[in-house]
Structure formats: structure tokens, C-alpha cells
């Protein structure tokens, strides 16, 4: 695999175009408008939301009041949801990355009976979307009395066929087979070799898979929506939507300012993580798109 960042570019083409930059700037504005709207709106009271222009401040600045209200509403249920999300992300995405790394490495570096079958099934599984599986999984889990427990969210999150595929593609080139043979000659056990040598070589691929599984579990909505009916088990996504639906119906009690502040608090950690780790997901994505 050629490292994408190292491909040289002809110098001639470095002439900058103002027109192209302006067109792309419009694209940029389109991307940023909803996020800016969210930022401005998070500083407003409910009355301010209704009486002011969306992309500017209202007369009253209540960002910190909204923050306090969001974190303390109904005995701090939002903090509870944040904790649940963290639990599902740490165990679910962490476990998914571990399983995908072990299996991708195993498929890339070992020849064993059934290897082709495992590979075919996993490739097929990439095409089966999580949402299609969610209703059948719910039906099965309710028979097993697993619904309304954290396991209902964690167990399905542990499987990442795409993550396995990424690690497999990555491991083929990143871990030289000769190195493994040499380690075997020296009498090192397979797990020892894996833990001391291979993991280090696989690190960029592992971080990429971790990022994508973290995003998938942090943003998961459909699965917890159908698996959980107890609000104290909700992740942030389902909780936020419940707050929002509170605005309509018989006993309507709109809390738009809290929904908006809650939305902001939900995206900040994941966006920050992405910005800081961008070097990794960019190289990992190229590994996935080069080979198919």
C-alpha cells in the first residue's frame, strides 16, 4: 500500500483559484449554518428563541443558565444519560475494536480451516445494515429477557464487520509475515507476539476502527430506542429526542432551550475527538478505499 500522504504533486498546478475557493466557501457555509444556529440558540431563553433571528444573539444571554438547567433538570437525568452513553461507548466500541483487531489479524496472518467461510460471511455482513438487524435482534432479546438492560445495547455494538475488514486490509501489509515467522523461531507464543509486536504495527488501523466504532455507538439511536423503555438507561440520543417530544401532546411541556443545550453538549466531545485524531482516521479511510 502506498502511503497516500507521500504522493508527490506536480509543482505546476499550485496556481490558486479565487473562483473555486468562493464556490467551496458556499459549501462551507452550508455545512456550518446549522452548527452556528445551534451555538447562537444555546445562548437564548425559550422566549428569546421565538423573538430573535436564528443566526444572532437575543437580548438576553442565558448560556450558563441553560447549561445549569440542562444538567439539573429532573434530578440531573442528562448527566445520567451521559454516563450511560460513556458506558455503552467504552464497553461497546472498545470491545468491538478489540474483537475486530484480533479477528482481522487472524484472518490476515493465519491459514486455518474455515478461514474462507469466515471471510465470506463477514464480507456479506458488511452489506447488512444495523437497522435491518435491529428489529429481529429486539425480538430475540425480548425472548431472552435482555431488553431493558445495558447488555441489549452492548452486545450488538460488539460486532463491527467493517472494522474487521479495515484491520484485515491493514494487517496484510503492516505486519510482515517474515517477522512473525522469526518470532515463532525464537519460541514466542502467538499472543505474546501479537501483544508485543503486531499491536504496535497495527496501531494506526486500530485507532481508526476505534474512532468509527466510537462514533457509531455514541450516535446510536435506533437500537436503544427499541431496546430500552426505562429512561434511566437511555443514552443521550434517545433522551434528547424524548425531551423534544415533550413539547407536543396532551401534557405538553416544551423545553426547547434544554433540547438545544443538550444537543450542543452531545456533539462537543465527539467533534473534539475527531479534530484531534484526524491524522488517524484519514489514513485509515484511505486504507479502506484503496483495496476493495
Amino acid at each position: 500500500m502506498t502511503a497516500p500522504a507521500l504522493v508527490r504533486r506536480p509543482v505546476r498546478k499550485d496556481r490558486k483559484s479565487v473562483a473555486l475557493t468562493i464556490v467551496m466557501a458556499l459549501f462551507l457555509i452550508y455545512t456550518l449554518v446549522p452548527l452556528l444556529w445551534l451555538l447562537f440558540s444555546s445562548t437564548k431563553t425559550q422566549a428569546g428563541l421565538f423573538s430573535s433571528f436564528g443566526l444572532w444573539f437575543a437580548d438576553d444571554f442565558s448560556f450558563f443558565q441553560n447549561l445549569v438547567d440542562t444538567l439539573t433538570y429532573r434530578d440531573g437525568i442528562f448527566v445520567r444519560w451521559l454516563g450511560n452513553t460513556l458506558l455503552y461507548v467504552v464497553v461497546g466500541a472498545g470491545g468491538a475494536t478489540l474483537l475486530a483487531t484480533l479477528a482481522g489479524y487472524g484472518l490476515a496472518k493465519f491459514s486455518f480451516p474455515g478461514r474462507r467461510a469466515v471471510f465470506a460471511v463477514v464480507l456479506g455482513a458488511i452489506a447488512v445494515p444495523g437497522t435491518a438487524l435491529a428489529v429481529p435482534t429486539f425480538l430475540m432479546f425480548s425472548q431472552l429477557h435482555l431488553t431493558n438492560t445495558p447488555w441489549a445495547i452492548i452486545i450488538p455494538s460488539l460486532i463491527s464487520p467493517f472494522g474487521l475488514y479495515l484491520i484485515w486490509v491493514y494487517a496484510v501489509d503492516a505486519v510482515p509475515t517474515e517477522l512473525l515467522e522469526a518470532a515463532r523461531m525464537d519460541g514466542a507464543g502467538e499472543f505474546r507476539t501479537f501483544a508485543t509486536i503486531s499491536v504496535r504495527l497495527l496501531a494506526p488501523g486500530i485507532v481508526t476502527v476505534l474512532l468509527f466504532t466510537v462514533v457509531a455507538t455514541w450516535n446510536n439511536y435506533f437500537l436503544p430506542l427499541i431496546m430500552l423503555s426505562k429512561p434511566e438507561l437511555y443514552p443521550l440520543t434517545v433522551g434528547l429526542n424524548q425531551w423534544n417530544s415533550q413539547a407536543t401532546g396532551v401534557a405538553a411541556e416544551p423545553i426547547y432551550n434544554l433540547v438545544i443545550m443538550g444537543s450542543l453538549l452531545t456533539i462537543v466531545p465527539i467533534v473534539v475527538a475527531f479534530l484531534f485524531l484526524q491524522r488517524f482516521w484519514q489514513s485509515g479511510l484511505s486504507a479502506g478505499s484503496v483495496k476493495q
Binding site: 459549501f27 462551507l28 455545512t31 449554518v33 446549522p34 452548527l35 444556529w37 445551534l38 440558540s41 436564528g54 462514533v215 455514541w218 450516535n219 439511536y221 443521550l236 440520543t237 434517545v238 434528547l240 429526542n241 423534544n244 426547547y256 433540547v259 438545544i260 444537543s263 452531545t266 456533539i267 465527539i270 467533534v271 475527538a273 475527531f274
Partner: peptide
């Protein structure tokens, strides 16, 4: 331009829905 990918669908829909 890539950033919205990290935004949960719930938040994306709530933002656009309010807009």
C-alpha cells in the same frame, strides 16, 4: 465539510427540524 459525519443523527435532525 467532513465534520457533520460526527454529529449524531438525532442532533442533526433536531437542528434542521428547528431551522
Amino acid at each position: 465539510i467532513f465534520l457533520p459525519y460526527a454529529v449524531p443523527a438525532v442532533v442533526a435532525v433536531l437542528m434542521w427540524g428547528f431551522i
